[in-house]
Design a binder for these strands. Structure first.
Lengths: 287, 287
DNA sequence: GTCCGTGATACCGCCCGGGTATCACAGGCC
DNA sequence: GGCCTGTGATACCCGGGCGGTATCACGGAC
């Protein structure tokens, strides 16, 4: 009575996201009528109207929005339980040993820090195996929540640390990465305003859920594309100082004087109780 | 395949907590055989051994402990989704309006602060109705996690703030509450060591999950019982300074010089997105 | 050896979740 | 108005799975 099956949550989240019973049904791999019925039962059991069926589409009520948010969180927690349990039992299909940590890092970030951390931890007496998984743009938090990762390197203010436990590791300034031939590359320092409004170097646009924000800049999907476009003199980018590790010969880095500092943290799910994780965190804070 | 019904989680958590299929079955209100079968199916589906059946009891494997922790979190998230959705729809049985915040406070704590907060918030233009629910000993965190509360006043270092978003509100010292007639009550200040080892005033023992820890002190279940025992000269207690609000005539408060300061925070679930909550937090930080 | 207590197995019945076919209704055409 | 289209809801059926009872297999206590 006061509990909800994950199946019902999956159904509702699908409908709430699609706002269309038919599309939600195909996404769930089922027919539409049972889905309609399931949602009705859900509403009856909760005693709450979740969807406003206005012939020609569906809209969420306030309670529906609440259930969408909370239900997503609950589903993430459930899939995290499955993933972590499988890993703990060594049955995640990778043939892994049972004592392994999955560390999520934004691809290409904090190269040097990561290297030092892994070396120092490997030397620790109780070191577990660490699997480094590159994460997409700022999805480390999601990976921690749904159990794909046990621990992550996160970069404030880009990643939100809210909901995780974390320790600060380092602070660094930011740099502009410019084509070496560009006039601005000769400068000793720059401001954010000076690099964001260069007519011949429009800022690149990253895909967000498969869609690109509007704007004049080139569309990119990964860092290599960005690096190439900079080298070709088509755009400019702003990165933490540690990005110097992957600069090309045609790139020039110029410090930004007024960009907010980037703070790298090591973060993990708040309720974690793993000894291997504690040991890794201890190693990291002592670097 | 990579998902788990809450029913299965409930079953496993019950077995893992009881370490006994029969007792777990009665707790779940079902017979033992289907429960055994369900756990076996769960192990098969996860591809992981969760329990070690050693004739004469059951023990958890490493993977089992992982699923117990993660599964509890997932179940809490699911019940939180139900509770918050019902409240958002005004169907929680209390006949409440849909815009209401539930604030958990440890009974008797931070009286004055709470009063000022409620008054200030009531004066805010966009104020929601605030329902104050007294929480048991340090269970505010649990109430936030399982959706019984939306926001809580928490007291570091007694409550753990890990996993929540929070703002610091005030810091206070701690006092010893003694029977007025006791020799120590005449002192201007005391140390923690001086009040914890008084032979004729053994520290009271609080029930923890219905069981009392061993020791010489009296067994108590709430603050009134404690206050009475102090007034009767049977025990001594240590509280934050704001406890002066509820002292009896027969009580004497003496500051403790070396007790860690108590920091009161307002805390809420990290993923919360409620405007009413944001407004309450803003009010609190401006007190 | 004989109980008792444990969890596992065998078998059965029924409920419920899902499928197909169809309806009810609102708009957009012509 | 007549017709088609697209929406979600309803009616009905079927099969799998969940839970129940009865029983087993095994080990310890006396």
């Amino acid at each position: 009575m006061d509990t909800l099956e994950t199946r019902e949550l999956r159904y509702f989240v699908a409908v709430a996201e699609e706002l269309h019973f038919g599309r939600a049904a195909v996404r769930l791999g089922m027919a539409q009528p049972p889905l309609s019925r399931a949602i009705q039962q859900l509403e009856r059991r909760l005693g709450v109207r979740l969807l406003e069926r206005d012939r020609r589409g569906v809209t969420l009520t306030g309670a529906g929005e609440m259930l969408l948010h909370e239900g997503r969180a609950a589903l993430e927690a459930a899939t995290a339980a499955v993933r972590r349990t499988r890993r703990a039992g060594g049955a995640d299909g990778t043939g892994a040993s049972r004592n392994r940590l999955v560390l999520a890092v934004k691809a290409g970030s904090s190269h040097e820090l990561l290297h030092k951390l892994l070396d120092a931890y490997a030397a620790a007496p109780d070191a577990a195996e660490v699997e480094v998984v590159p994460s997409g743009t700022c999805e480390q938090g999601e990976m921690l929540r749904d159990g794909r990762a046990d621990v992550a390197l996160m970069h404030a203010p880009f990643n939100s640390l809210v909901g995780f436990d974390s320790e600060e590791l380092m602070t660094e300034g930011q740099i502009a990465i410019l084509p070496s031939g560009h006039p601005l590359a000769a400068r000793g320092s720059l401001t954010v305003a000076e690099v964001t409004d260069v007519p011949d170097l429009p800022l690149a646009r990253w895909a967000r859920d498969g869609v690109y924000p509007p704007g004049p800049g080139p569309e990119i999907r990964d860092q290599t594309q960005l690096a190439q476009l900079i080298a070709l003199g088509r755009t400019v980018a702003v990165f933490p100082e540690s990005a110097r590790a992957w600069l090309w010969a045609e790139h020039t880095a110029v410090p930004l004087t007024d960009a907010p500092p980037v703070v790298t943290h090591i973060a993990w799910p708040a309720h974690s109780r793993s000894l291997a994780l504690a040991s890794l965190v201890r190693t990291a804070t002592r670097l």
